[in-house]
Design a protein around this nucleic acid. Structure first.
Lengths: 112, 112
DNA sequence: ATCTCCGTGCAACCGATGGTTGCGCATGAC
DNA sequence: GTCATGCGCAACCATCGGTTGCACGGAGAT
């Protein structure tokens, strides 16, 4: 059931640093590699790389402002990602529920 | 807002092969490294490694059966993981909604 | 009891990725 | 013009996902 096309999206948000990056961008409404690296335990270059992969999958987009490079989240794409999470979660929940029901059924037959 | 403790859980389910592994285990109600590798485009050893990390974070647990090693999903832990997904998704959705509202507010003031 | 097969585990190796340091470049501030 | 600050590029390192190869061990056939 897991869609194969969206593996890129998953691996993008699978990294903890990138998730926090998205958190920061959402909280402050954008930022540059240097300002973001101030709030993270990694160097500016590491942040820049992460912003690169987030940009490649379309979760953020950059706009040159003077000598800075300001990044902002692409809300549509992030909403898509959230939908992905929800979808996989729902699928697993359904399977877990089925297992639970079967277990209960077995329990019931054994009690008879 | 992202919990730091659950990074292991995230990176565990962040890998596409591991996600499909969980899918297969849920569908067939368990399996061994060899049987699982039959349904995946990777070798048995790769599957074994993935099962190892899934075991370490507690999403699956192995029971030796004869000369086989049968793996099954730990439903409680997987439910925890699903809750994590939902939580992060909800947080992002909330932020996105706030941004949308602010944008609409600006729009409204501009229209006056 | 032994031989054979099949599933596992272990080790070495390879490419990609997350992270670092160091440098050079350009652009805005003085 | 000069200075400094933000950026990009390159080299390097560790870890990880994946492979191949091999050695071990238990279940079943002879």
């Amino acid at each position: 059931m897991t869609a194969a096309i969206d593996d890129d999206l998953w691996s993008a948000i699978g990294d903890p640093t990138r998730r926090r990056l998205l958190d920061l961008l959402l909280a402050d409404g954008g930022g540059t590699a240097t300002t973001l690296s101030d709030h993270l335990p990694v160097t500016r270059q590491a942040v820049a790389k992460h912003l690169g992969v987030l940009d490649r999958v379309g979760l953020v987009h950059a706009t040159p402002a003077g000598r800075e490079r300001r990044y902002e989240v692409d809300e549509v794409q992030l909403a898509r990602a959230v939908a992905q999470l929800a979808s996989v979660g729902a699928a697993w929940n359904a399977r877990l529920l089925r297992i639970k029901r079967i277990a209960e059924a077995i329990q019931r037959t054994r009690e008879n």
